[in-house]
């Protein structure tokens, strides 16, 4: 077991190296660099640009070096915990991200809990009462959740919250708490604002999860081993939870791999619409303005979380499902 984890951790190293190369290449793909887009922006505002200053900045940031050299500077920096420098914010990447990561995790964590709390009972009900009115109704609501674009829902919710509850529009807290140290009132204000993004981001996830869990459960519900349990005299609810749900959970555990990165990246578009101080909008603007170290380091962070998430879900699956733990490896 320990050997297995160690091997998996070792495989991560080459994986991350390859990902870092890919990330860097993709960021470099559009023509020009951050300074080109900076000049374009200045010129569009009618300001003149001093070519000497630009040349100085280019040297300063190392943008005149060949691409591979830039990559090595960036990659070796990351190994020492230096994630580079954001051109746009004029700050180290870690400082740009730091603040927002906490809030992002908070929003995402609440969203995940919201999704699970809602999706599990509904899916169990839907699967056990297949083709009943309750199932049809919940399915209908679920499809609406899936089909409505999140940003639209966000706008509607914002309007409703402002008209009915008087909550200030946008952001995760009342404007007067911005840049204030944390205290109880600020926390309450955050909670007041939090539910909108949680509901907005959560709806489509909930709907999707209901559909998948329902389908998985339906596959299992009439399997002979469930009939065996019935013939044993196991009461209905215990039967449902112990047997088919246990098997249907596999897909859910396998999802954890993609859950971790989505905790951090959040829902970008919704975050922009709601002007949430989370990490999503930063990533988008960094990609647009070719703020390459900020974008690159952020993507690397996501890649890292994905790999760790997949490892965690693999270990959980092996722990939960003896078939995965004990079989396999036969050669043709």
């Amino acid at each position: 077991m320990l050997q297995y984890i160690l091997r998996r951790l070792l495989i991560m190293i080459p994986t991350l190296v390859v990902i870092s190369m890919l990330v860097f290449t993709i960021i470099k793909l559009p023509p020009g660099d951050y300074l080109d887009s900076y000049i374009a922006e200045l010129q569009s505002q009618g300001e003149t640009v001093d070519p000497k200053k630009i040349e100085f900045m280019r040297q300063q940031y190392g943008l005149d070096q060949p691409a591979w050299q830039q990559y090595f500077t960036w990659a070796s920096g990351m190994l020492q915990g230096d994630f580079g420098y954001s051109f746009e914010y004029d700050l180290p990447v870690t400082e740009v991200m730091g603040d927002r990561v906490t809030l992002t995790i908070m929003v995402s964590l609440f969203t995940v809990i919201f999704t699970w709390l809602l999706a599990f009972p509904i899916a169990l009900y839907s699967a056990t009462h297949q083709y009943s009115w309750g199932d049809y109704g919940l399915t209908f609501v679920g499809f609406i959740g899936l089909a409505t674009p999140n940003f639209l829902l966000a706008l509607v919710m914002l309007y409703m919250a402002n008209v009915h509850f008087g909550t200030s529009i946008g952001g995760l807290m009342d404007p007067r708490y911005l840049d204030q140290p944390w205290n109880w009132d600020k926390f309450v204000s955050v909670l007041e604002h939090l539910w909108i993004p949680v509901v907005v981001i959560g709806t489509s996830g909930t709907a999707g999860m209901i559909r998948r869990l329902r389908a998985n459960l339906l596959d299992e519900l009439h399997k002979p081993y469930v009939v065996t349990a019935q013939a044993k005299g196991v009461p209905p609810l215990k039967r449902l939870l112990k047997y088919p749900l246990r098997v249907a959970l596999n897909f859910f555990i396998a999802d954890i791999g993609s859950l971790l990165p989505s905790l951090i990246s959040g829902a970008e578009i919704v975050a922009v619409v709601l002007s949430l101080p989370t990490t999503g909008p930063i990533l988008i603007s960094a990609l647009q303005s070719q703020d390459m170290y900020l974008a690159g380091s952020f993507l690397m962070f996501l890649a890292m979380l994905t790999i760790v998430g997949v490892l965690i879900s693999d270990l959980l699956l092996a722990w939960l499902d003896p078939r995965i733990r004990l079989t396999g490896g036969a050669q043709k």
Binding site: T228, Y243, D321
Partner: peptide, 12 residues
């Protein structure tokens, strides 16, 4: 039952 291969839960 008829099918001993599927009439028992493989998870328990």
């Amino acid at each position: 039952f008829q099918e001993p291969m599927v009439s028992l839960s493989n998870m328990h």
